[in-house]
């Protein structure tokens, strides 16, 4: 009979190098699933939020209902949101993506709308005076000026989506949340801590990435400041 190995895994320590080296594939898979869930949901949310915000800006009557609906959606707790979508999507990754889309949508619509509303009326009139049509005005004047606010919303939405995706573990598609969930059931400290830390790292890196994109897209904001 061989003695059980006396390493940090056997002792169930919080920080364990051996866990990292032996479970690398599991961790990489979980991070990839996490990234996939988050990126897909934020992209879909952006594609829906942009036209909604433009519509709400153009057509004042639509603004009230759009904002009210997004507030209601945002108030519903994530676990309940995923559960309400269960009859529609079943136990699938689509369910998690759909839930995350609804949350990101709320943040994006609010921020893009705020950005569009903050465009000075004089700027709009100047563009109109120069012969800009409504579409050219939107694409070349209003949207670029709304970009900082929109990007702020995108960053908040992305960070929230990374964090909320863990709850997807309830249907087995939670990326790093799956590892936290199974680690909880088996009392596996190293796995829970590693997955939690990775989750925060992913959120911070995504935020920094978007901050970089924002700086590249809006060079004029730096020019004004300096």
């Amino acid at each position: 009979m061989t003695a059980p190995p006396d390493d940090c895994l056997a002792r169930n320590e919080w920080i364990c190098g051996r866990y990292l080296s032996t479970r690398r594939e599991i961790l990489v898979d979980a991070v990839l699933q996490h990234l996939e869930l988050t990126a897909l949901s934020v992209a879909v949310a952006l594609a829906i939020a942009l036209p909604l915000a433009v519509l709400a800006r153009r057509w004042v009557l639509a603004a009230g209902p759009v904002l009210a609906l997004t507030t209601v959606l945002y108030t519903i707790p994530s676990l309940a949101m995923f559960s309400l979508l269960l009859p529609v999507y079943g136990l699938s990754s689509t369910l998690v993506v759909a839930g995350l889309v609804l949350y990101s949508l709320t943040l994006l619509v609010r921020n893009i709308l705020a950005g569009l509303r903050a465009v000075p009326e004089e700027t709009r009139q100047a563009a109109r005076g120069m012969g800009y049509g409504p579409i050219r005005l939107l694409l070349t004047v209003e949207l670029p000026l709304a970009l900082p606010a929109a990007m702020a919303g995108l960053r908040i939405a992305t960070v929230s989506a990374v964090s909320l995706a863990t709850v997807g573990a309830i249907v087995g598609f939670g990326g790093l949340g799956n590892l936290i969930y199974s680690g909880m059931n088996t009392y596996f400290k190293a796995q829970v801590l590693t997955a939690s830390v990775l989750c925060v790292v992913v959120a911070v890196l995504a935020d920094l990435l978007l901050l970089g994109v924002q700086r590249l897209l809006t060079p004029w904001t730096r020019a004004v400041r300096s």
Partner: peptide, 18 residues
């Protein structure tokens, strides 16, 4: 507030549970 948003609720709950 920004820090609070990046930390998953579920992860904190499980960490505290352990």
């Amino acid at each position: 507030s920004n820090v609070g948003r990046a930390v998953p609720t579920f992860a904190v709950l499980v960490l505290l549970l352990l």
